[in-house]
Design a protein around this nucleic acid. Structure first.
Lengths: 254, 254
DNA sequence: CGGTTCATTGACGCCAGTCAATAGTAGTGG
DNA sequence: CCACTACTATTGACTGGCGTCAATGAACCG
């Protein structure tokens, strides 16, 4: 059972104590090495470049940077965003430990968005050209990589659905439920967690304003569906939140 | 120089005359075999299953169907859409010749959306397991496949941006400009083309109502930016449409 | 011809954006 | 310790863009 992230987030000791390897990484059941045997994990380990610490608000890569590496998040959280011609930014996703960053860069050989750490984090640098060589030798690895890319496509389709169809309250409920299930998959509490991003970031991601997010939080609190204290969140009625997100339940207008 | 789609769309003769092969397909510079030499194209040809005719409004696959094949569009147009728990559909994309359908199904081994033909169309069935075997033998094919998947991720990010940030007029301009450039890439006129989808489909895709689309068309016409006759479209001022789509130009409110 | 589907146009209302005031929080330096 | 600033969040009042509802028109087809 993994410790809460806040524990892992002081990793100076942990990192130096354990050899940095996929086999020792608590995320290896979610990340690229999923389903590989020990030998194949070692081969993957050998191509992985350095582990990089990225401090809060630091940038891992920016748009138009040449693409060389994918990045697997060891711990911490990131946001990815694009900046359009008019200079406005739009957040395209929030990523957490065990997830892969940079897949949108393969197509044009340059990064298509910026990635910034929401807290002090660590990533594994995966040189993509060497990874592709390895695909020829480890079909399971290749297959899993395709699943990961496909999952990213599905994830984005779900966001498109959210942005295209849902009302503010549905979007926000969907957002909470999504975070909840991702924490659950990592062994953390699905009902108690911290929002690693600002209200503004949430609003930007969901196509809403910071004021709307604030009002939604107050409303959900008043309904007794959740507790909020700053960025600390506790979901009290996941059932109704899921129903809201699915569109099968209407929110009392208040 | 390819013929207009309407010519190709009566393919009974063409198909029987030419051997159905990637080398003979007018889309091979955009599709999976891009950049392969003759020998490798032949190997790809050998794993490709039958060519399937899909009539207008017919379904190529539906959500939760088990995933076996990717589909490359030889000619025609498709739409893909999801149906949520509340029974509403949401269109996630419009696909045309040379594009690949089904990549969102790799992750869960079931299709994640429905694909329906917007006109009489033809696709090549590509058994995914055999394609993965071939990847081990043709690294260029693998690399190009990754680019295609990555491109799909980028495309969806652009739609997220559109749905999350843009106003109705920007969305619609972006939609037109996108179609225009895709037709251009296929050797068709970037300024004169047919909308293969209904106004309702367009609205659904852009997160707008059919009424809004209708009003936008009238407005763009009145501004002299385009001509519209039923589904026949002619872009008169691509520059301003691009500027609108980029967010660097404001539409006169009218 | 009438029925059906699709598109256009207008009137009206609502959801979420905008603007603005206030409060809480974190960080800095005296 | 407090004062000061900068930033983030909350809440209210008002506005406007787009959805909703409804009527009409155009195209298609048996």
């Amino acid at each position: 059972m993994p410790q809460p992230l806040t524990y892992i987030a002081t990793p100076a000791q942990t990192i130096s104590a354990l050899k940095a390897s996929c086999a020792n990484c608590s995320m290896h059941q979610l990340c690229l090495p999923m389903g590989l045997d020990e030998g194949d994990i070692n081969r993957l380990d050998q191509i992985i470049g350095r582990r990089r610490r990225i401090l809060r608000d630091e940038r891992l890569y920016k748009m138009d940077d040449p693409f060389r590496n994918l990045y697997a998040i060891r711990f911490g959280h990131f946001k990815t965003f694009q900046i359009n011609a008019g200079g406005e930014t739009h957040i395209t996703g929030f990523q957490m430990a065990g997830e892969l960053l940079g897949m949108d860069a393969i197509s044009a050989d340059r990064h298509h968005c910026d990635a910034v750490a929401l807290e002090d984090s660590e990533v594994c640098e995966i040189p993509f050209s060497r990874l592709e060589e390895l695909f020829g030798e480890i079909p399971r690895l290749l297959h899993h990589f395709h699943r990961i890319m496909s999952q990213e496509i599905m994830r984005e389709q779900n966001v498109m659905l959210l942005l295209g169809n849902m009302r503010a309250e549905q979007r926000f409920a969907a957002f909470l439920v999504n975070l909840s299930s991702r924490y659950a998959a990592r062994g953390y509490s699905p009902t108690s967690f911290q929002l690693r991003m600002s209200r503004e970031d949430i609003g930007n991601y969901l196509g809403l304003t910071i004021e709307s997010i604030s009002r939604l939080l107050s409303r959900f609190k008043k309904q007794g569906w959740m507790e909020v204290d700053k960025r600390e969140v506790r979901l009290l009625d996941s059932t109704i939140l899921k129903a809201l997100a699915a569109g099968t339940e209407n929110c009392t207008p208040m």
